[in-house]
Nucleic acid binder design. Sequence first.
DNA 1: TAGATTGTTAATCGATTAACAATC
DNA 2: TAGATTGTTAATCGATTAACAATC
Lengths: 214, 214
Amino acid sequence: MKALKIKALKIPEATIIRLSVYSRYLDYLVKKGVATVSSGEIAEGVNSSPAQVRKDLAYFGEFGTRGVGYNVQNLHKEILNILGLEQKWGVIIVGGGNLGTALTQYKGFQERGFVIKAIFDNDEDKIGTKLGDIPIYAVSEMEEYISKEKIKMAIVAVPSRYAQEVVNKLVEADIKAIMNFAPRVITVPKEIELRNVDLAVNLEVLTFNLKNKN
Amino acid sequence: MKALKIKALKIPEATIIRLSVYSRYLDYLVKKGVATVSSGEIAEGVNSSPAQVRKDLAYFGEFGTRGVGYNVQNLHKEILNILGLEQKWGVIIVGGGNLGTALTQYKGFQERGFVIKAIFDNDEDKIGTKLGDIPIYAVSEMEEYISKEKIKMAIVAVPSRYAQEVVNKLVEADIKAIMNFAPRVITVPKEIELRNVDLAVNLEVLTFNLKNKN
DNA sequence: TAGATTGTTAATCGATTAACAATC
DNA sequence: TAGATTGTTAATCGATTAACAATC
């Protein structure tokens, strides 16, 4: 008896991250006016291998032409689609300190279609003011704002000791995805997407390598 | 003929990252006054598995006692040592914009023993001023500063189009490790440690998952 | 047609998980 | 001694790389 083969193929996270890198390189090629590109050329441009590039793309479809390569504009568009970047995403930032402020103005988010809509903080001096165009509200107003504005994504840039508490509030407010900068183990229900960005760990990998490779 | 078996065991980067997470949890246990901990308890504290914890530690030695577990203080110290954090590390930041400024004052670096020593920028209005205690110098002074102060690590927080150029200067100045925030493919000689932190990619992994898992 | 390059399958490599003897 | 937990080996799982038929 042959079981119906359902393609429940799991896509490695490394693949998603590489797709993001490919899309930036393709963006560069589009601007340069290049029409066609091979997996080998992409690999060279992003320090990968041709097989890896083709494998990553193969999870999602057949985007190339044998003997020819890939249409640059088309592949670029396809990858942005795969990543969910065919639309703009409204994002809120919790925490209006140095990091939150820097992230609010970070060009790299805007370039990829992420729009910071508001900052939430508990500092009375900041509440009611604006950072450039972006309003700063009290954390107590967060749940209502999320619901009213249908916000799906939040960035948590508060001191570590408040991070879990803030995340709990976000979950209650029905946020779908959280990018957390606090170097703490944070717990969320399994249906919530959580990504931890630990800045210090990155330096620690470097010190480990300095100490051991040399 | 039996070849001499040299233990050139390669340690997964994922292990290093987890060690960093373990060390933070152990720090918490130290402060809580806990004396002994098992691999199972660590695993629970950091969302991992007991086997993973023991495997990660086994790359570096035998730190526990069978039937008992690990001495919290000792294990904490051992892991910091493995990561190279038994010493303080002087770090410079290139780029005094929003992100560079935020990173300069980021507590998470200080807590782990990273000391930001100086910022380098090309903005005439900033050069010669200070950000808190941290002096801002011209990029033209960078090479001399690195050599004089024996700086090993640098953080690159300049606009993407300048990133490779800045990295080249750092390499010439004999820097050993670079943490790069520019979302560009950066090339360095193989003896230089390079780590790319791409903030937008993290949001893109979230949008991908939002789009596909739900 | 000949040359090039894809999409895909098979082989390899590496990391995680499970199992268990060692031992406190 | 009995129970607990480590350190380590073996089994499994997953991701990368290599190879090649398909095909432009």
